[in-house]
């Protein structure tokens, strides 16, 4: 599997996802600068987290209007797999590959803490290796992760199995205390119509190393590997 990571001015989780792909999973990994249009024939495109353009204007707004993203849009439309994490998710919403928007956290604060995620659909390229009943413990670290979309879109996301992850309590229940940014229906990540594009606020790359205490995030990468192999 070939992985391409797109770097924007101000990305700060670029090193983390590169390490995730290259060192933890030993995948050939290319790094593409935001001004480049050539994605170098990836099987998976990773849009890293961070503060592209300092989150100025709106998080992800300026990054979503760059040559690299134009190529990512073409790649996704032809069925290519794209995973946007945190700021990457914000970019995917801003460029229109995913519906809705990520608003300021309801607390108005940046929040960094471990949360529990429940997969909404296990039959997707990004979730197929998650065992039944398994909750993933993955950290969030963002100021704008409060997912919002109109009612029609919300209905479609639910009925089409496009809610990839929800924030839940350790017991697996929807609980405002465990949805600290106020996302609608506890949405932590959503999929495109064809389910080849996933945007999620939590950082699986930060929960993929035993030395750091938790490896639940590996399941997402492993799902992609298994999807591409089958």
């Amino acid at each position: 599997m070939r992985v391409t990571v797109v770097q924007f001015l101000g990305s700060n989780c670029d090193h983390d996802v590169i390490q995730w792909s290259k060192d933890i999973f030993r995948m050939p990994t290319e790094v593409v600068w935001y001004t480049e249009s050539d994605l170098r024939k990836p099987d998976l495109v990773l849009l890293p987290g961070g503060f592209s353009y300092g989150d100025y204007l709106r998080p992800g707004a300026m990054a979503s209007r760059t040559p690299a993203i134009e190529s990512v849009i073409d790649f996704a439309k032809s069925g290519g797999l794209v995973l946007g994490i945190c700021n990457g998710f914000q970019i995917l919403c801003e460029c229109g590959l995913l519906p809705g928007a990520l608003l300021r956290n309801s607390s108005l604060h940046f929040i960094c803490r471990d949360l529990y995620l429940k997969a909404g659909n296990k039959k997707t390229p990004f979730t197929n290796k998650i065992p039944d009943g398994k909750l993933l413990r993955v950290p969030i670290a963002h100021g704008d992760g409060n997912y919002f979309c109109d009612e029609e879109t919300a209905k479609a996301l639910e009925s089409e199995g496009r809610v990839a992850f929800r924030y839940v309590s350790p017991e697996g229940k929807i609980d405002p205390e465990w949805n600290p940014n106020g996302s609608m229906s506890g949405i932590a990540g959503i999929l495109s119509e064809k389910k080849n594009v996933l945007g999620m606020m939590p950082h699986p790359e930060r929960a993929s190393d035993k030395a750091l205490g938790c490896e639940d995030g590996r399941l997402i990468f492993e799902s992609v590997i298994s999807h591409l192999e089958s």
Partner: peptide, 14 residues
């Protein structure tokens, strides 16, 4: 205080 700070970026935090 601490939840307002990113504690785990760069994946080195033990």
């Amino acid at each position: 205080v601490f939840t307002q700070y990113d504690q785990s970026v760069r994946t080195n935090t033990v």
